[in-house]
Simulated assay, not measured.
Amino acid sequence: MKYQGRSRTKRTGGRRRPIHKKRKHELGTTPTETRVADAKLKTVDTRGGNVKVRAISTDVASVATDDGVVSATINGVTRNDANPNYVRRNIITKGAVIDTSEGAARVTSRPGQDGQVNAVLVDDE
């Protein structure tokens, strides 16, 4: 988990003393690396009594085509600018280009945050 609080140095280079200890809501979590496999979801309680649905793995994407939105099966990840290793490990993040039954599509949603994969068709590069 990563803690990103206030900077410890002033603009002048002087030192800032902490105003309080770390708070629970200031902590982060490890990223949810959504893989291409059978669908598996996980719910996480968030601040304010809300709930997030994380996609641990998925094999279905809602692809926007000229005819409308179609549910397509995901075959694999072809490109991921977030991390080149994600292509080898078949990890889906926002902006990743996935190979679907409808063709190549770019992911527009955040599967680790939304729990679903939304994508739009792209020209083969």
Rank of each mutant, 00 (worst) to 15 (best):
Y86L: 07
K24L: 01
A64S: 11
H25P: 00
V60C: 04
T100R: 11
D123K: 07
V117L: 06
R47C: 01
K2I: 10
A105D: 04
A104S: 10
Q116I: 07
R106D: 01
V97L: 12
T100W: 14
D59V: 00
A104I: 01
A119W: 10
G95K: 11
Y3W: 10
D45Q: 14
G13F: 09
A105G: 07
P84R: 14
V69Q: 12
V122Y: 04
I92A: 05
G103Q: 09
D81Q: 11
R16I: 07
R47G: 00
P18E: 06
A64F: 02
R23N: 01
N90S: 12
N50S: 13
R17C: 00
K42N: 04
R89D: 12
G68P: 02
N75R: 10
K10D: 12
S101V: 06
V60M: 12
V69S: 10
D66N: 13
T12Q: 09
E125Y: 04
K22E: 04
V77C: 02
K24E: 00
I74K: 06
Q113F: 14
R35E: 00
D124L: 05
G95S: 05
D67I: 11
S7N: 13
G14W: 08
N118E: 11
T34F: 01
S71L: 11
V87T: 13
K21L: 03
G95E: 04
G76W: 10
T29F: 10
N90P: 00
K22N: 01
R54A: 15
N85S: 15
V51R: 11
D81E: 13
L41H: 04
Y3S: 03
T43M: 09
T29H: 13
T9M: 10
T43I: 06
K42Y: 02
L41T: 01
V107C: 07
I56D: 04
G112R: 02
T100D: 10
L41C: 00
V87E: 13
V36Y: 04
T32C: 12
D66T: 14
T12L: 08
T32K: 03
R47Y: 12
Y86T: 01
V107I: 12
V87D: 04
R11D: 14
